Amino acid sequence: MTAKPEGKHPPEQSEMPLVEHLLELRGRLLKMTLAVVICFAAIYPFANPLYLWISDPLRELLPVGQTMIATDVTSPFFAPLKLALVLSVFVAIPFILYQIWSFVAPGLYAHEKRLAFPLLFTSVILFYAGAAFAYYVVFPLVFGFFTAIGPDGIVELPDISSYLNFVLKMFFAFGVAFEIPVATVLLILTGATTPESLAAKRPYVVVGCFIIGMLLTPPDIISQTLLAVPMWILFEFGILFGRLAKREVNEPQPDESSGQ
């Protein structure tokens, strides 16, 4: 009888009964929830200083004597609470993705595992990089633009809840936009497209990046451009790494050729 190539088939534990899969899934969901709760318990005592830090890009640009306000009675409590909760999920993302990886990894082929984990790790780094880019690069420029074009005699008193909703939306938009290389590589590896086909569609992708930038950012050319240009650059990196990953998959592996 011909032996099964070790590297081409998932391990046998991927065939365990459905009930065991569901129990394992429940356990991992509980671990993810517990991780978020622990992060929240550690972050919430610092919620007010964290809100001051996240509002620095705007408060530093306000004229002397002007500050942020709370137009709702409950905003001073719920705005920092919401920030702490979102940051808890944000901090727990690596552990959450690790639990997801541990759940699906037993059912993957060996060559899929070699590519899946780097893609998972890269997606976390890129999401954090997108949020950091928004905070350190985009916010100072965008808020500088908005605070400079207001009519004379208008006192700017931004609401703390509105500001938080705005920055969280921007964090999410830039974090997701920075995942373009991972999405591009996955499209190439699954056979949905090819690097050559994506390269041929480059003009349409550039236009699409600016349309997405227009939809996800405020109606100013600065933030739209600061989102669209990185998206296009990351798309080019996605094509490059997609070619490398496809070459890695197509190359015969020693463990797959020595199973006879």
Rank of each mutant, 00 (worst) to 15 (best):
58 L>R: 04
59 R>N: 12
59 R>F: 03
59 R>K: 14
60 E>D: 13
61 L>M: 13
62 L>K: 07
63 P>L: 07
63 P>Q: 03
64 V>F: 09
64 V>H: 09
65 G>P: 03
66 Q>K: 11
67 T>L: 00
67 T>D: 14
68 M>S: 06
69 I>G: 02
70 A>W: 02
71 T>R: 11
71 T>N: 13
72 D>P: 00
72 D>H: 08
76 P>C: 03
77 F>V: 11
77 F>Q: 08
83 L>P: 01
84 A>F: 01
84 A>M: 02
86 V>W: 12
86 V>H: 03
87 L>H: 03
90 F>N: 05
91 V>F: 14
91 V>M: 08
92 A>C: 12
95 F>E: 01
95 F>M: 11
96 I>S: 06
96 I>C: 11
96 I>G: 08
96 I>L: 14
97 L>D: 08
98 Y>L: 14
98 Y>Q: 10
99 Q>P: 10
99 Q>E: 15
100 I>F: 14
102 S>Q: 14
104 V>E: 08
106 P>C: 02
106 P>L: 08
107 G>Q: 11
107 G>V: 06
107 G>P: 11
108 L>V: 11
108 L>A: 07
112 E>M: 07
114 R>V: 13
116 A>I: 11
121 F>Q: 10
121 F>A: 15
122 T>Y: 02
122 T>H: 02
123 S>I: 08
124 V>N: 09
125 I>T: 13
126 L>I: 08
128 Y>P: 06
129 A>T: 14
130 G>E: 07
130 G>R: 04
132 A>V: 12
132 A>T: 12
133 F>C: 06
134 A>R: 05
134 A>Y: 13
134 A>S: 14
136 Y>K: 15
137 V>A: 15
138 V>C: 05
138 V>I: 12
139 F>S: 05
140 P>T: 12
141 L>A: 15
141 L>P: 02
142 V>A: 15
142 V>Y: 07
143 F>N: 04
144 G>N: 09
145 F>E: 04
147 T>C: 08
147 T>K: 04
147 T>R: 00
151 P>S: 09
151 P>K: 01
152 D>H: 04
153 G>P: 07
153 G>R: 03
154 I>K: 06
154 I>F: 14
155 V>C: 00
155 V>I: 13
157 L>A: 11
158 P>V: 01
159 D>T: 07
160 I>W: 00
160 I>Q: 01
164 L>E: 00
165 N>D: 12
166 F>G: 00
166 F>Y: 15
167 V>T: 11
169 K>I: 02
171 F>P: 00
172 F>W: 10
173 A>I: 08
173 A>E: 02
175 G>Q: 02
178 F>C: 05
178 F>S: 05
179 E>I: 01
179 E>C: 01
180 I>C: 12
180 I>G: 00
182 V>E: 05
182 V>S: 06
184 T>S: 10
185 V>F: 05
185 V>Q: 10
186 L>P: 10
186 L>G: 06
186 L>E: 10
187 L>F: 13
188 I>C: 10
189 L>N: 05
191 G>C: 07
192 A>S: 11
192 A>I: 08
